[in-house]
Design a protein around this nucleic acid. Structure first.
Lengths: 187, 187
DNA sequence: ACGCTCATGTCAGGTACTGACATCAGCGTA
DNA sequence: TACGCTGATGTCAGTACCTGACATGAGCGT
């Protein structure tokens, strides 16, 4: 007889998303999530730094993918490098994740606290990209602007991707949004 | 003999910034801040929705200034309109606020929780700008990108403004940063 | 003198989060 | 087999954030 079942972390994540979607983020206590996963509150906090973080595990991997995309891109100006990395990062969001992403985003959009956390993650992404660009020799201001622009394109593109009725894959959307941004700033 | 001194809100804000700078955000309790201001914890929460918010009161006014700048701008493409609004919003940060802004930013940069809140405020700013641009008839995607770009320029410019040794006024810096962004995306 | 308003105080309570210590299955090793 | 180590989990106590309900009392109009 095992004392504890494996996959505690994943069970907690699944339980949290389910409960948040049903009762709302504020309407769900950590103790409830843990109980749903067959664990205790204390164990939840051993797996996740705080209640919000349970929805954002895996972001590190996404960030690493993005940074790797920058490091591996062929020599070019910062914005083109970012565009290349943007392309590569879409591998993190294959088609079969679209409806799951929609559900998760719905939960986040319903709570300012979760939005804060998402913005912090995206900001961390921009910082990591900026650093990676600087390591390639880019000017710091140019690197920061390119990274922030890349994140802005991703935000707008991702929102479009999970919008009702949207059919295009994320990569195609990101290309279109980036094109729009370029023409916007050409004036 | 008065039962309570006026300016409770301002006293709380001053006490909070002082304590945060000295003991750190986490190392300061709301009860301490309130006591420093000669009030109780409960009163603190009547003035500010949560502990973080005490550092961000006044952001609404800044946002209104920004939106007004967009509404009053002469007819032009979205990015030019945003550039005009950016110009006008610098009135919120006159020279004599620079060192105060530096101190406040130092406190924020030292705590992830405060960074989250700052990002949420900036995101709210971008949303308000997007809406204002849409009301002027801009395309939603173009409006969102212009607003996000404007906020990115402001972030980078503001960080430069409060950097050690920087002399230029904010407006001049923002013009330069925007120029840099334009040339970055021209390729 | 009366009552209204409104900022504040007081108190009880819920929830997030943390530190310290206990438990116990699995596993290697003597 | 017996022993002890490891590591995930449980238990418990405690702090701080935040909220709802109710009390207080100065200022003000009537």
């Amino acid at each position: 007889m095992v004392r504890w079942q494996p996959g505690a972390r994943e069970r907690l994540q699944a339980a949290a998303l389910e409960r948040f979607a049903a009762e709302g983020f504020d309407g769900t206590t950590v103790a409830e999530i843990a109980a749903t996963a067959g664990l205790t509150e204390r164990t939840f906090f051993r797996h996740f730094a705080d209640k919000r973080e349970v929805l954002f595990a895996g972001q590190d991997e996404f960030e690493r993918l993005f940074v790797a995309g920058i490091e591996d891109a062929p020599d070019a100006d910062p914005m083109t490098v970012v565009a290349t990395a943007l392309e590569g990062a879409t591998a993190f969001f294959p088609e079969d994740r679209r409806s799951w992403s929609r559900a998760r985003q719905g939960v986040i959009d319903a709570d300012p606290g979760l939005q804060e956390r998402e913005l912090l993650k995206l900001s961390g992404l921009a910082v990591a990209m900026t650093d990676a660009l600087c390591r390639r020799g880019a000017d710091p201001i140019a690197a920061a602007l390119a990274a922030e622009s890349g994140v802005a394109v991703f935000k707008v593109g991702f929102a479009t991707w999970i919008a009702e009725g949207e059919q295009r894959p994320l990569a195609a959307i990101l290309r279109a949004v980036l094109g729009e941004l370029r023409s916007l700033l050409a004036s």
